[in-house]
Nucleic acid binder design. Structure first.
Length: 244
DNA sequence: GCGACAG
DNA sequence: ATCTTGTCGC
């Protein structure tokens, strides 16, 4: 029995144009909750989500990996296969990933706790990146940890692990801290942390440090990335069963 | 108008 | 994101 032939469809009413997608962001942005500190680092569970694409076949595979926040041991995993629901447009990344990411979170056997996304939350042209979007749709605490500064500016943090500097957005409201460039390992390029939903920036950075005892990227991201790549390879055009 | 631009 | 071999280093 192959139960993974089901692919997550593009939801009815999903934005079809960039203009519609931006309108959705403008409408949902007001629902982001910014006055909660979020779960304390090192307690409960932390879940990484990531996706891999095969644009040729219009396929997106999402993976979620739940870790014990104290030990970073894997507690649960899930994958989901979907249809690519939007082209890649800077600033509209969420519309490409969210349907399948929602499905993979649904497929988890336990609550995810804090969700760590690849990409941004508030550090976004309209202050509503993937992590914030996912948080508003699920009500979960979310943060974004990105590998690149996107269009934002920052000064190089100190060389030691734990050093950080503000990630700054341009003039619309004057230089505004939308996230932080955070050094997670001595002497390596920083990562770019921003708040998604129901977490403070300080707490988001503390979580990121707790998740990077050895590598530049959080263990959540590393695990989810490797899982969705494996699952994509096992997802043949005829429909093989990924890890489930 | 042109270039840059999370993944 | 993805296309791709070997190679330098801990």
């Amino acid at each position: 029995m192959n139960t993974s032939l089901n692919t997550v469809p593009i939801p009815a009413g999903w934005p079809a144009t960039e203009e519609q997608a931006r309108a959705v962001q403008d409408e949902l942005r007001g629902r982001v909750v910014l006055d909660e500190p979020g779960p304390p680092p090192g307690t409960g569970r932390v879940t990484g989500v990531d996706v891999a694409y095969d644009d040729e076949r219009d396929v997106v595979v999402a993976a979620a990996v739940v870790l014990d926040a104290a030990t970073l041991a894997v507690v649960a995993e899930a994958t989901a296969v979907g249809q690519v629901s939007f082209p890649y447009v800077p600033g509209l990344l969420a519309f490409r990933e969210i349907p399948t990411v929602l499905a993979v979170l649904d497929a988890l056997p336990c609550p995810p706790g804090l969700v760590v996304c690849d990409g941004y939350g508030l550090a976004h042209p309209r202050r509503f990146g993937l992590a914030s979007h996912l948080g508003v749709l699920t009500g979960l605490s979310t943060i974004g940890v990105a590998k690149n500064p996107f269009t934002f500016s920052y000064e190089e943090p100190g060389a030691r692990r734990g050093s950080a500097s503000p990630l700054l957005a341009g003039e619309p409201t004057g230089p505004e801290e939308v996230g932080r460039a955070l050094r997670t390992q001595d002497g390596v390029k920083p990562v770019f942390v921003s708040v998604g939903h129901r977490v403070s920036l300080d707490n988001a950075c503390a979580h990121t440090l707790a998740l990077t005892p050895k590598y530049r990227l959080p263990e959540t991201t590393r695990s989810a990335d490797s899982l969705c790549r494996r699952a994509l390879k096992e997802t043949t055009p005829s429909g093989a069963s990924p890890v489930d």
